[in-house]
């Protein structure tokens, strides 16, 4: 029993992960045929894992992930994302993200990113903007301008 009856919970499609395409590097060189694991979690503890593999030039495409969402005013939407790259048997985290909204391209500040490059060996840099808190070793055009506006 919730404050609002279940009949009133409007179902909508939300964006769990906006998808991305870019290049994976290891020490500046393309990380070819490398497995990338994308783990997302929002409605249960286990979450979902998707795997993609880079091509010979280190390029990869991660698909968009959508889900049905029944709005419940008493439950805050929290989406977690973690991306790891499995390079020569070692697993490296390249992306940790938490977001509180579920619109397309929230992860990138609201618009489609271009020129995404992720360097496996770089430290994760923290970013906080809009409804997103993240740390990543990926960069794209405009990433340095993303920050909370009046901190």
């Amino acid at each position: 029993m919730s404050f609002f009856s279940s009949n009133d919970n409007k179902k909508e499609q939300i964006v769990i992960f906006s998808g991305m395409e870019g290049q994976l590097l290891f020490n500046g060189k393309p990380a070819k045929n490398t497995e990338i694991k994308i783990w997302t979690q929002w409605k249960n503890e286990e979450g979902e894992t998707t795997t993609v593999t880079t091509d010979d030039a280190g390029n990869y495409q991660i698909p968009v992930e959508m889900d049905d969402y029944s709005s419940n005013p008493l439950a805050q939407l929290v989406v977690s994302q973690r991306i790891t790259a499995v390079y020569e048997g070692n697993e490296y985290v390249i992306w940790n993200l938490g977001k509180f909204t579920a619109n397309m391209f929230d992860e990138f500040g609201g618009s489609k990113p271009s020129a995404i490059q992720c360097e496996i060996t770089d430290d994760l840099t923290p970013y906080r903007f809009d409804s997103v808190v993240m740390e990543t070793s990926c960069v794209w055009d405009g990433i340095s301008e993303l920050k909370e506006d009046d901190e």
Binding site: F3, Q41, E45, N72, L74, A75, L77
Partner: peptide, 12 residues
């Protein structure tokens, strides 16, 4: 508070 991953939002 309560989250979407923890849908026991009947506390209220």
């Amino acid at each position: 508070g309560t989250t979407t991953a923890n849908n026991r939002a009947d506390w209220l």
